[in-house]
Amino acid sequence: MNINGPFVEKILKLFIREEMKKSHFSRGIIGLSGGLDSSVCTALAAGALGPKNLTALILPYGKVSQKDVEDAELLVRALGIKSKTIDISPMINIYYERYPFKNNVAIGNKMARERMSILYDFSVREQALVLGTSNKSELLIGYGTIHGDMACAINPLGDLYKTQVRMLARHIGIPKQILNKKPSAGLWKGQTDEGEIGLTYKELDEILFLRVDNKKSREEILAKGYSEKSVDHILKLIKKSSFKRNLPPIPKISTRTVGHDFLYPRDWE
């Protein structure tokens, strides 16, 4: 689980620079919440592309996460990048006034997709590629909104567990107030990731690391002393969220089919 901060920083910056170049973009755009993942990704992208070539969009819902907005603005100033703050509450409110629905998860997803929609609109306005900020822990258990915060052109942090993102954040000097706050998707007031997932990131990442990186079976993980409740919960989440990690299935009825046996690399030059 340990990482070498300078090496990972170097590799991820090279990745950002090279994937941008292959997509024929020189500028990037990123949704910055003021949380750990988007802050780390913003700092890496600013370093990789140069501060002038990165725009951060800060997209709060009204005043719900005022502290996060302040932290995001602090990071923007420290990195010397361009930013724009857009309150998404008018768009969200007008929709739910017309089609009321009292469901926190659905509303949270709607907000994530509103942010995605703005990011992709600005992607065209600014001729900038959208950088994603999903980490490996989230991707594996499906803790993200499909076509929402999971939507992006490249995803630099996708192979780092939350624990490792935190290690990297410490190495690259992310401000303390961002580093030390409780991880939250900011979906509603007082929401925390750990509260919603029902596990601490420490336990989650340790179990995921054993299962995914070391290919340990359920029984082998249990033998290491992890509770049956936690392990089974995580295994269930991995399985349940498989659809978020795959393209929608296409019925294969011809000899050559997109998603089955029409196989071309994305980085095709």
Binding site: N2, I3, N4, P6, F7, Q164
Partner: peptide
């Protein structure tokens, strides 16, 4: 391809 992280460089 490179793979596998640790506290070491590379």
């Amino acid at each position: 391809p490179g793979r596998g992280l640790s506290g070491e460089e590379g």
